[in-house]
């Protein structure tokens, strides 16, 4: 397990400063501060409604923040559409419900964005797509449709699809929560491989085993705030906060 050096550097992959987000009058994110270095693997956990999905969805502008600053790869995330497009090209996202395009084959799902967003020629896009499908270990499913695959297979295709854009940062929003238990490990294996290759990852998940194995830092969020943040050994063995300990006992207890 590679451990990067957590700490402020002058050029982090993602810098979140005093992030505020409101849904109407509901204060979903309260003055969140987070800095993620290149190559760092962050796992975010917490009870539902704690704002963890909201936070990472703010990073690729699927949600608009109301206060504070988000800087991704040196570019500030604001109302400038050019900035937004640039950031989305470099940030890949994997969703809880896969969100594969059902009317296209697996291969087309993976080739689409590189061809129309990065303007790659078809042959190049196809080669990239097949390479990543190989990497997630389902190259034989290339011409099937998403509806014909199992949940675990679909999520692996979703990861390949995001990777085909060759992003610098990968966001995971509860990637295994919608999977049947026997399929969780095949997806986690892919994510572990990705982590070992040095990809910057921010992962919202309940899979604590994965966090222990792969994360450089584990972050616990509750009520819209970051309550605790620490390397995994420290986090699991001797967390400093009462709320963290309560949550851990609930999640790890069963």
């Amino acid at each position: 397990m590679i451990s990067a050096n957590p700490g402020q550097s002058s050029n982090p992959a993602v810098r979140i400063e005093n992030l505020d987000k409101y849904y109407g009058t509901f204060h979903a994110l309260r003055h969140v501060n987070l800095s993620v270095e290149r190559g760092e693997r962050i796992v975010v956990c917490g009870p539902s409604g704690s704002g963890k999905s909201t936070m990472i969805r703010c990073i690729n502008r699927l949600e608009q923040h109301n206060g504070g600053r988000i800087t991704v790869l040196g570019t500030e995330l604001n109302d400038d559409v050019g900035n937004i497009d640039e950031i989305r090209r470099e940030v890949g996202m994997v969703f809880q419900h896969f969100n594969l395009f059902p009317h296209m084959t697996v291969l087309d799902n993976c080739m689409l964005a590189p061809m129309i967003v990065r303007k790659q020629p078809r042959a190049e896009a196809e080669a990239t797509a097949r390479r990543y499908l190989e990497k997630v270990r389902i190259p034989e499913q290339a011409l099937k449709f998403p509806g014909q695959l199992s949940g675990g297979q679909q999520q692996r295709v979703a990861i390949a699809r995001a990777l085909c854009m060759q992003p610098q940062i990968m966001l995971f929003d509860e990637p295994t929560s919608a999977l049947d238990p026997e399929m969780i490990s095949e997806v986690l294996d892919v994510m572990v491989t990705l982590a070992s290759e040095g990809m910057t990852m921010i992962c919202v998940t309940h899979e604590m085993g994965f966090a222990r194995r792969v994360a450089d830092r584990v972050i616990f969020m509750d009520g819209g705030e970051i309550v605790e943040e620490a390397p995994p050994e420290e986090f699991f063995a001797s967390s400093r906060n009462e709320r963290t300990r309560q949550f851990l006992s609930q999640v790890l207890g069963h």
Partner: peptide, 23 residues
């Protein structure tokens, strides 16, 4: 059409017309 479809398209960097027309 589930909203996740458009979100996935947005996350992949597709423009408005690309999202509308292809997804």
């Amino acid at each position: 059409v589930p909203s996740g479809q458009e979100e996935a398209a947005m996350a992949l960097g597709m423009s408005y017309w690309q999202r509308i027309g292809r997804i």
